[in-house]
Design a protein around this nucleic acid. Structure first.
Length: 802
RNA sequence: GCCCAUGUGGCGGAAUAGGUAGACGCACAGGACUUAAAAUCCUGCGGGCUUAAUCACCCAUGCCGGUUCAAGUCCGGCCGUGGGCACCA
């Protein structure tokens, strides 16, 4: 049997018959299966792609047979630095590289038989697509959600570009892995931080996997606390944010961020201005990474002439600069309680500041007694005036109330998540459709002039001065102001590659719409994405950006739901056979094309589904792949046993109904490996028989079809059935999934001593009688007193003796 | 340090609500078929102890405890591995 020819044959059949084309509308209920569209790299499709695409393909194929109108689209996320770097290295235009890569990817996907609706294909780099990305940016701008700000940003010296906080997690460039540095630049920003609470709340309206939800919750990083005003001796005041207001009596100093706004205001009053300025300069030089890595001691600088007044005791306490306080979190200033915060403790030691323990229960000579240790254990306050003796929980509440009543504090929430830095100094991205006019300032382009096309140029290398390569293209940059008609310049930064992927799933619902990014009708028809599969690494980035983007569109009335993604799941990686991540340098890369050539697409698909728990990483194992070939060969051989018959063989009925149920449920619960295993069991059962009916064979082929679509269609055709892709999914009868005879274990004092055969739902008394009469069990009961018997029909018998 | 995940044979991994641990597959060993190989088929395959071989028994889901008639599964405490975050007040 030539797998190659068969696979081509059926791929052509599907194409000719437009089998997988989804219609917007109709009788059938809609079902949207989505898998992250890939970045079409030069390396081609990875076996890891095959794993998740096959999984979603199996769901899509099964759902179609179950009578759903399934949307299973595919496209290309093709903007971004890798394409640009590839292009620079090979001296071709990124557009050409992308076109070539897309065609390779598409061919590979088609070879594997994924049931994508190719009529909806697009790339984020298509002007007809990025026109709408730009249009949506203008909506952000027009609703006050996009602004330009000069801020210290993460700058990657190698990529020569600004990175978002999400892209620079851990202080290193996400792509090239080198340390990022801080640089002041004027950037477009999207006000994502203002959506922090909505993004948290919205998670309740999703069915994301728990770990995905947690990933987002952690990234958003909400803390509840109190913002407290602190007066300065001689007038003026500042605020601090704290989550531990119960320690207020332990304040012995305050620390403010050297990179924050506050110090700029206070500086004129600082007596040791020179020293302070020097410290600020030093801080600026350190990147975020250094600041955390140094971690050696707590550097800082006392601000002479600035003394704070303790809000309750009215004592005067010193104020310091310290780089462990971040300028862009909270208020950029903290109240320091060295007895109850390790950082404050270290700082106090370093700078010889007094400490006051205010929570009893642990010695604070060597270390602070921190909140994670004193909360929830009934710890009580000391040295805290009228609050002494209260538990920390009571004190938290009462102190807050007192301060709020005094009018010097507010309960607030703070979030780690910041606004989205939306500018990149790169060529290969969506141009930001903004124009700068000396007279009018930043002016948005007229919507009817979109798309703002990327110019065709010869030079797209990034520049050392931190400007986008677009800045060099004078006739593109120079334009007229849409407002006053005067001379103006275009924004030369481009969007991050997360922009295009933030709304592509909406476009798939209505991909050829010329008037809108997608019609409200189409989006209402399809509703939320039913299944969205993607990598865990996108949890804090793509998925968060996409949700933010959708929530914004919802708030301005352009999408029907605040959350457009219902279930989000993620797959484990396919590792090399040495259990390490596949990489060229390790020489453990498996190319799916080779596997298809040597085995077949179906075998590769079945293997990747069978290789292990879908959500866990799994190493590649060629031997195991051969086992899957044996399974497919067995399926083929079974055809020789087929005889006429339009019903299931009587003795196979139970196992067939059981298998239908199992495959159906497992396929929808990410249990792909156990679905395949139950099909193996069914095939093994068939093999033991002399003959099987056509119907027996047909049902096996149908159940296997979502996983191995080509060979099953071929065999099914050979026994004279019409194509599986046009048939319906078999139904199981719950009654028939249950064995009439069940063998159960008999335990004596919890240890298995024998087995008995019972009929389904047999009476307890009758089961017990059988158990007591079991020869082996009898031996253990001899001369003993039966204290208790437990009989669970269909499951177990346990006899307790003394 | 904090958060998450995870720990079951030689290996990948099974085990709805606690109910016969090791499904299914791989590898390995022995055998059949073959001139031979491949393919296929049959048998065995956690450890220990016994035995001529069986039968039987004992131990076993990272470690230590607990709850229960019964624990891979529930609870408490440790240890290991992988990942994420990390001076976030």
């Amino acid at each position: 049997m030539n797998f190659n020819i068969i696979e081509k044959k059926w791929q052509k059949y599907w194409e000719d018959h437009e089998t997988f084309k989804a219609q917007n509308g109709g009788e059938k209920p809609p079902y949207y299966v989505l898998v992250e569209f890939p970045y079409p790299s030069g390396a081609g499709l990875h076996v890891g792609h095959v794993r998740s695409y096959t999984a979603q393909d199996a769901i899509a194929r099964m759902k179609r047979m179950q009578g759903y109108n399934v949307l299973f689209p595919m496209g290309w996320d093709a903007f971004g630095a890798p394409a640009e770097e590839y292009a620079i290295k090979n001296h071709i235009h990124p557009k050409e590289a992308v076109t070539k890569n897309i065609s390779t990817f598409k061919k590979q996907m088609q070879t594997l038989g994924f049931s994508f609706d190719w009529s909806r294909e697009f790339s984020t780099t298509d002007p007809e697509y990025y026109k709408w990305t730009q249009w949506q940016f203008l909506q952000f701008y027009k609703h006050g959600m996009a602004y330009k700000a000069t801020i210290p940003v993460n700058w990657c010296p190698r990529c020569k570009s600004v990175l978002s906080n999400e892209d620079a997690a851990g202080g290193v460039c996400e792509r090239c892995g080198i340390q990022v540095v801080q640089k002041e630049k004027s950037q477009w920003m999207l006000k994502m931080a203002s959506y922090a609470e909505d993004l948290l709340e919205g998670l309740h309206d999703t069915n994301f996997a728990e770990k995905v939800k947690l990933g987002q919750i952690n990234w958003i990083g909400k803390s509840k606390g109190v913002e407290l005003d602190v007066d300065i001796v001689g007038g003026g005041k500042f605020s601090v944010f704290t989550t531990c207001i119960e320690t207020i009596y332990g304040i012995t100093f305050f620390v403010i961020a050297p990179d924050g706004k506050l110090i700029k205001e206070l500086l004129p009053r600082v007596e040791n201005k020179e020293e302070a300025l020097q410290y600020i300069e030093e801080t600026k030089k350190k990147s975020n990474m250094d600041r955390t890595e140094l971690n050696k001691g707590k550097t800082g600088c006392l601000l002479k002439g600035i003394e704070a007044i303790h809000p309750i005791t009215k004592k005067h306490v010193p104020v310091f600069l310290g780089d462990f306080v971040l300028g862009d979190y909270g208020t950029g200033a903290v109240m320091a309680v060295p007895s109850h915060d390790e950082r404050d403790f270290e700082y106090a030691k370093e700078h010889h500041i007094e400490m006051i323990q205010v929570i009893d229960g642990k010695d604070t000579k060597d270390h602070a007694y921190e909140k994670q240790d004193y909360l929830g254990v009934g710890a009580k306050l000391i040295n805290s005036q009228e609050f002494t003796g209260l538990t920390v929980e009571e004190a938290k509440e009462k102190i807050t109330k007192k301060l709020v009543d005094m009018g010097i504090a507010r309960e607030v929430n703070n979030y780690k998540m910041r606004d989205w830095i939306f500018s990149r100094q790169r060529f290969w991205g969506e141009p930001i459709p903004m124009i700068y006019c000396e007279k009018c300032g930043w002016v948005p382009m007229d919507e009817k002039d979109l798309p703002l096309l990327l110019p065709d140029v010869a030079e797209y290398e990034p520049t050392d001065d931190g400007e986008s390569p677009l800045a060099k293209i004078k006739d593109w940059v120079n334009t007229t102001c849409p407002h006053c008609g005067g001379k103006a310049r275009r924004e030369t930064d481009t969007m991050p590659n997360w922009a295009g992927s933030s709304w592509y799933f909406l476009r798939f619902m209505d991909p050829h719409n010329q008037e809108e990014f997608a019609s409200m009708d189409a989006m209402k028809y399809w509703g939320k994405v039913d299944w969205y599969n993607g990598g865990m690494e996108h949890t804090a980035r793509h998925l968060l950006y996409a949700r933010f983007w959708v929530q914004f569109l919802y708030n301005i009335g352009l999408v029907p739901h605040k959350e457009m993604i219902w279930t989000r799941v993620s797959h484990g990686m396919v590792l090399g056979s040495n259990n390490e991540k596949m990489s060229k340098s390790k020489g453990n890369v498996i190319n799916p094309d080779d596997v298809v050539n040597e085995f077949s697409a179906d075998i590769l698909r079945v293997y990747e589904m069978f290789m292990g728990d879908y959500e866990q990483d799994a190493p590649w194992n060629t031997d195991s792949l051969k086992g899957c070939k044996r399974f497919i060969d067995k399926i083929i051989r079974l055809k020789e046993k087929v005889v006429e018959g339009s019903t299931y063989s009587h003795d196979l009925e139970t196992i067939i109904h059981k298998t239908i149920k199992k495959v159906e449920q497992d396929t929808l619960n990410l249990g792909f490996n156990t679905a395949i295993s139950s099909l193996m069991i069914l095939a093994n059962t068939y093999e033991e028989k002399e003959t099987i009916t056509k119907e027996d064979y047909h049902v096996l082929l149908t159940l296997l079809n979502p996983y191995a679509p080509h060979i099953t269609e071929e065999l099914n055709e050979q026994i004279g059935y019409s194509p599986i892709c046009e048939s319906s999914w078999p139904k199981y009868d719950e009654e028939k999934t249950i064995d009439q005879e069940i063998t159960i274990g008999v335990q004596v004092n919890g240890k298995l001593r024998g087995e008995i055969v019972t009929s389904k739902d047999e009476e307890k008394d009758s089961i017990l009688e059988k158990a007591l009469n079991n020869e082996k069990v009898k031996q253990f009961l001899e001369g003993k007193e039966i204290v208790k018997t437990i009989v669970i029909p269909n499951r177990i018998v346990n006899i307790v003796i003394k």
